[in-house]
């Protein structure tokens, strides 16, 4: 972090941050300085890459989460907690809970009940520490005219006095946690994968930012931090998971994790909890007595773009 801060507070007139090398050359004569300018441009580009895009040496050499030993995970978590404390002035929990036994998470959303209030959208942003500037939201609530389910005719831009509106219905879309996920398949470095409990996760410290997964996703389930994420310290959620809602860095991909930090300790995802009409259902697909299993067995369900054979674990259903 120190590197980053010093570069921001520097008074360099150019686009690049001042480097130690450059500062020392200020004492030299002007002609020497000019001679060195071309060299400096090259040196600055190399040093600049470290100064602006990485925070620490430990972060730079950090391994893929799946390949880390227990000790490495503990050390990394400690480092991250220190980093977050420095940045937000708060003590963080960075959980590393693994998948639960005999559990495969699934989700169901009742289209008939959804009123399009977008409470889920904002609860998700707060729970999962999405950047407020630029804004990232994992859930997009589509509005359709009655009698039409054509995505190209839908819109996310509706702003009435009151919802629901006459003549419309709503369909929230987020990561569908596909069993045959096109996004994890294309990642050139295996920075994203499906956990044993069915949650599709991203290792933010392993992602190289190529955005191939975003091109591969048919649901717009993945979002990119085009700039350093900004979250006010007073609204940061300090209860996090390594593969979930811990603060992200710029130029990496993130996505819905079914609130991995909550569901692995027996809580519901934030969007399920906040829904005022109970349209959102969540549970264990492997348990035949769970609510989600009963819905899939007994209700009329469908999965979005099922013709693509992505096999989402996210179902839409009609309760009545």
């Amino acid at each position: 972090m120190r590197h980053k801060k010093s570069s921001e507070s520097g008074s360099s007139p150019g686009n690049r941050p001042p480097t130690d090398l450059e500062n020392s050359s200020i004492k030299k004569t002007n002609s020497e300085l000019l001679d060195r300018r071309t060299f400096m441009a090259g040196a600055a580009s190399v040093l600049g890459m470290f100064a602006v895009s990485s925070c620490s040496w430990q972060e730079f050499i950090q391994n893929n989460f799946q390949r880390m030993t227990k000790e490495e995970i503990e050390q990394t978590v400690e480092r991250l907690r220190k980093e977050y404390k420095e940045k937000y002035g708060k003590d963080f929990v960075v959980g590393t809970e693994g998948p639960l036994e005999a559990t495969l998470f699934g989700y169901a959303l009742d289209i008939q009940r959804c009123i399009g209030c977008r409470k889920c959208v904002y609860a998700c942003v707060e729970e999962n520490n999405q950047s407020r500037d630029p804004q990232i939201q994992y859930i997009r609530v589509l509005r359709f005219k009655d009698g039409d389910m054509d995505l190209e005719h839908s819109t996310i831009y509706y702003d009435p006095e009151e919802v629901p509106e006459d003549g419309y219905y709503y369909m929230p879309v987020q990561c569908q946690h596909c069993a045959n996920a096109p996004c994890t398949k294309v990642c050139p470095v295996r920075a994203t994968w499906t956990e044993r409990d069915g949650i599709v996760v991203v290792d933010y410290n392993w992602c190289i930012g190529c955005r191939y997964c975003m091109a591969a996703c048919p649901y717009m389930g993945r979002w990119f931090n085009f700039a350093e994420p900004v979250i006010p310290a007073e609204s940061i959620n300090t209860v996090t998971h390594y593969l979930g809602n811990r603060p992200r860095m710029k130029n990496v991909v993130e996505k819905c994790t079914f609130c991995i930090q909550r569901v692995r300790v027996g809580k519901y995802p934030a969007c399920v909890e906040v829904c005022p009409v109970g349209a959102r259902k969540f549970g264990n697909l492997l348990d035949p007595d769970s609510e989600i299993s009963k819905i899939i067995r007994n209700k009329r369900v469908f999965r979005l773009k099922s013709e693509l054979n992505t096999q989402p674990k996210f179902y839409y259903f009609f309760a009545t």
Binding site: F50, N64, C187, P188, V189, I208, G209, C210, R211
Partner: peptide, 27 residues
Amino acid sequence: ADLGRPDRIWHLIPGIGILNLPSSLLS
């Protein structure tokens, strides 16, 4: 130039990194 994290380009080197073969066409 298109990569968000060029500092992590070593993640592509088999062995110290992971080159996701055979499944990723980018690899």
